[in-house]
Amino acid sequence: MGGPSVRGMTNAVVVEGLVKRFGENTALGGVDLTVSEGTVLGLLGPNGAGKTTVVRILSTLLQPDAGRAEVAGLDVATQADQVRAAIGLTGQYAAVDEYLTGTENLEMVGRLYRLGKKEARSRAGQLLERFDLTGAANRPAKTYSGGMRRRLDIAASLIARPRVLFLDEPTTGLDPRSRLGMWEFIADLVHDGTTILLTTQYLEEADRLADRMVVIDRGQVIARGTADELKAQVGGERLELTVGTVEQLAVVTDALRPLAHGELHADQQTRRLSLPVTGGTDTLAEALRRLSSARADVLDIGLRRPDLDDVFLTLTGRSAEDADPDSAADEPTATVSAGAQS
């Protein structure tokens, strides 16, 4: 399993057989994963899957019951102090001191990472600027909106330029513009050589940011690989088109049958035709040629690649949305589909 690493050859994170129990509840039932240096691993899973538990163990906040974890070549159990100096952590819920201003928050964290006074100050200034917080830099964080706190929290985890960064649902609660900004920023960090493990419920986000993905559900890895590999598990691309009438549906079905790599699916009700294809846009061009010589009247046509919602549905038999085993009552971030909260 697992494709070749995209850039680095060594692993910045190694997790082997990680088990964590909370009383009767097994949060992690033997998780294995690696993150190659300088790449992004997306850890995906529904509520309660165990994503946060993995992050908390890797950032030395929790001790595993069994298994081993290494970060930046250091054992999280026996070399916790050195691990902390090499990592940055942004937890699932913003951990900023609301009585301190943005600048004070960042300077405090910088000092605790043992940066000099001057360096802490200049890094704080840079990061506030980068995260669009310069205007609010001297206001107590109490007055910040949720998205601003979130950005400040991420800035704090970056103050000492960590080699390995853990981001637990970094864009939950951000508006679409801030989310895009965050994506760009994460891409910049990777470009500068930072290794990132990020958890997300936004499948679009993992698709966009992560070199490789690990999907967990109820503490077990259920799939891993690149986005393309995961999508291949679900099936390849499909050609989908919509026509105006039932007669037309018969016409286009006849015209396109030779292109189908498997079962065609024609739906009389919605007058939609869907067929598995290979060959990408060449096939699309060929389809258009056939449709025009058959004088078919097509309202809408497109190639559709399976998204990770399809992946999840195929792997678990249920969609990511209704997978939450616990009650979502105390979870402020229950929405799952990308872009749902705009």
Partner: peptide
Amino acid sequence: QKGLIDRFRSLPMSRSA
């Protein structure tokens, strides 16, 4: 409650500070 202790515990700072 506000998660600050988690933040501090993830930093390479002194354990008693």
